[in-house]
Design a protein around this nucleic acid. Structure first.
Lengths: 102, 102
DNA sequence: CAGAATCCACCAGGATACTG
DNA sequence: CAGTATCCTGGTGGATTCTG
């Protein structure tokens, strides 16, 4: 988990979404709800498997996404945004929009 | 400057505002336009002078803030948001708001 | 006052290999 | 398939000192 400093709300938000791949993961999950691990991998090929796992774990810990594990062989998991995570939509779109026109 | 990866607009935005202190600096400059170096220091006491200087330099390089240097002794500088930087206001407020209620 | 320079510790993250 | 485990390196950021 990232370092401990004084926390104003902006910082808390950024801590939760600005991990190296978090914003992209959230963005992908907004357009592709219910993604499997490997699907996310393909959607974000520059992100290593290790990093993807780490970031997903943090996002889950922060309650932004939830993981469903199907007890089948071979393993199958699905990731989706929680309600809390979905509330980020306008914010993420704001970031997207500003980045697009600037 | 931060590392080079594939750039979707969100990432570009986050790169520019999510340096360790950048969002806070921007936030402070939204409420306190035209701040001197030491004033910012006092507004963000947990940020070291070194870091403040580095972050300000990057923000300036990215065209989010501008620096005015008055040719006086002792030195006097003032930092303020550029137009481009000011456009971040709704985004920053979105981050702030989400962090506040979540 | 407003920084720049230097030194150093730590850890984020890549590459690779292994597993239930 | 969906992850761990381990090893290793470059970069981030703190502390301190110097300067125009």
């Amino acid at each position: 988990m990232t370092k401990q400093t004084i926390q104003c709300p902006i910082e808390r938000t950024l801590k939760q979404i600005s991990g190296k791949w978090k914003s992209v993961i959230i963005f992908r999950l907004l357009e592709h709800p219910r993604c499997r691990f490997n699907e996310l991998q393909k959607l974000i090929p520059e992100c290593s498997r290790r990093m993807l796992a780490l970031q997903l774990k943090e996002l889950e810990h922060d309650g932004l996404i939830s993981k469903t594990v199907y007890p089948v062989v071979p393993p199958k998991t699905e990731y989706s945004l929680t309600e809390r995570g979905k509330k980020l939509k306008p914010v993420i779109e704001g970031l997207q929009e500003w980045g697009r026109i600037n």
